[in-house]
């Protein structure tokens, strides 16, 4: 019982002490009431798992919240699941879409739950790359015709007696097996399996000066760390990739665009107008991506920094 009394006294003392010192919850007015009282409502923004996308999403979300007063919910989702979300009403917008003709067909043409909302202004490039040191040491490697000459160098424990072509992120479409076969290259495609694996491989290649050739793409934040050099494959011409098994040309340039849910578009609210109007350059995106990946800013801080430096561009989006 003595113990009981002791504890009671102690807690009462603690209570009394804190009553003077602490800031009470609910006494201060709720923060964030400064946003313009506009009828924007909820805005569900999918965030696909790569930094370039995150840069787009960060800036759009920032502007939507600060300038339009929307309640933005970011949802971290893989592309396929984000597209599914249009149908279930849980996703309003995807703000960097790489082609995905199959998904377009399924959700825009067949299920009619999604609609395209214009280009982002970014150009996507897919191809085969080598680390800068290789391009400097073997300048002719950038021509695909010379690749067989170097196959020996690219041999690894995974590729047997052929050169290794490191393929990548399973999210991206790859024609590489067909390319290797149709260009009669003495290479074997090895599936790294993730973006992290690709980036690590290129990093190590540059650091250790080990030969490596692999699949990569831009815009990508990693290119601002290490300027990979693209191999020139036979030029892309419309229709040269019509038959998947016979492809013998480079990847097409992707025009990255935005996709929104049908409902979101039909409502035609301020958030939709912002998404539709949003457009910027590869450099813009790379900069914000760099803030996030290298300077370790939060998405919000990175967006703020860019928005404050580029008021004109933001004004242009909002003007429409």
């Amino acid at each position: 019982m003595k113990l009981l009394r002791l504890t009671a006294t102690a807690t009462l003392t603690a209570l009394a002490l804190t009553a003077c010192g602490g800031e009470k919850i609910g006494e201060t007015p709720a923060a964030g009431g400064s946003a313009p009282a506009q009828d924007c409502g909820a805005f569900n923004l999918a965030v696909n798992p790569w930094v370039g996308y995150e840069a787009n999403a960060a800036v759009i979300a920032y502007v939507a919240e600060k300038n339009l007063g929307c309640k933005v919910t970011k949802k971290d989702l893989k592309e396929e699941i984000a597209w599914q979300g249009f149908g279930t009403g849980e996703v309003d917008a995807i703000v960097e879409n790489w082609g995905h003709d199959d998904l377009r067909k399924k959700y825009i043409d067949e299920q009619k739950t999604a609609v395209a909302a214009g280009e982002t202004g970014n150009k996507g490039v897919i191809g085969w790359y080598v680390a800068p040191w290789m391009a400097a040491q073997y300048p002719d490697i950038t021509d695909w015709n010379n690749l067989n000459k170097y196959a020996e160098q690219f041999k690894t424990s995974e590729s047997g007696d052929k050169g290794q072509l490191l393929d990548g992120d399973p999210s991206f479409v790859t024609n590489d097996e067909a390319l290797v076969k149709n260009l009669k290259l003495n290479y074997k495609v090895v599936y790294a399996g993730s973006e992290a694996a690709l980036i690590t491989a290129f990093r190590q290649s540059e650091a250790k000066k080990t030969p490596l050739i692999g699949y990569f793409y831009e815009p990508q934040w990693f290119l601002s760390e290490l300027k990979l050099v693209k191999i020139n494959l036979p030029k892309y011409e419309t229709g040269c990739d019509a038959d998947a098994a016979k492809i013998a040309c480079d990847y097409p340039e992707y025009v990255l665009d935005k996709i929104v849910s049908k409902k979101f578009a039909d409502a035609n609210g301020p958030a939709y107008k912002l998404v539709k109007a949003f457009t910027w350059t590869n450099d813009d995106q790379n900069l914000v991506a760099k803030y996030i990946s290298e300077d370790k800013l939060s998405a919000d801080d990175a967006a703020k920094k860019w928005v404050e430096a580029n008021p004109d561009k933001v004004k242009a989006w909002l003007a429409q």
């Binding site: 592309e79 396929e80 992120d169 399973p170 999210s171 090895v190 599936y191 790294a192 399996g193």
Partner: peptide, 15 residues
Amino acid sequence: GAGALGYDVVAGFSQ
């Protein structure tokens, strides 16, 4: 980099 079944599953999830 394991390829094979593991890669098939990951790719199936992504595409």
